[in-house]
């Protein structure tokens, strides 16, 4: 079969799907944002939960939830976005739980990270890989 440019484009789209190629990663900027939030303190696993879909139907609107028992603040980052910062939730005295949900934009398949500053001043982290599918028709 002789390959034309159109074939190559069409097949390329198919191949990218199979491999699940991530878009460009800007991990450095994400790490910098984490360092700014933690002041360089150690970040361990612990009291923080991040709920995100394994596969997002559209990167424009991805529902996520963060929750913790003892967080004072939770920062969410999309490590593969051109600007990794997503949101920072600060809980006040009348927060009934240290949890919140929102809908976010993901520029492609990547890791979403939640870092909580706990009441004792320590930092914990949770991470979740979200696969972002490309659309079918004019997607």
């Amino acid at each position: 079969m002789q390959l034309t440019r159109r074939d190559a484009i069409l097949m390329g789209a198919g191949a990218a799907l199979v491999v699940g190629l991530p878009l460009r990663a800007f991990a450095v900027t994400g790490d910098e944002a984490i360092a700014a939030f933690t002041g360089g303190a150690e970040v361990s696993e612990g009291d923080i939960k991040l709920t995100a879909p394994e596969i997002a139907e559209n990167g424009n609107t991805v529902p996520i939830e963060v929750s913790s028992d003892s967080a004072a603040e939770i920062m969410v980052l999309a490590m593969g976005n051109p600007e990794p910062a997503v949101a920072t939730f600060k809980f006040g005295p009348l927060a009934a739980s240290r949890s919140a949900s929102t809908r976010i934009r993901l520029a492609g398949t990547q890791d979403v990270v939640a870092i909580a500053k706990l009441e004792d001043g320590s930092f914990v982290k949770a991470s979740s890989t979200v696969k972002v599918t490309i659309g079918g028709c004019g997607g």
């Binding site: 991805v62 910062a85 997503v86 949101a87 920072t88 939730f89 600060k90 919140a100 809908r103 934009r105």
Partner: peptide
């Protein structure tokens, strides 16, 4: 009295 104070970035839908 405060319940929540959220900083939103351009990645919010």
């Amino acid at each position: 009295e405060n319940i929540i104070d959220i900083t939103l970035e351009p990645a919010i839908s």
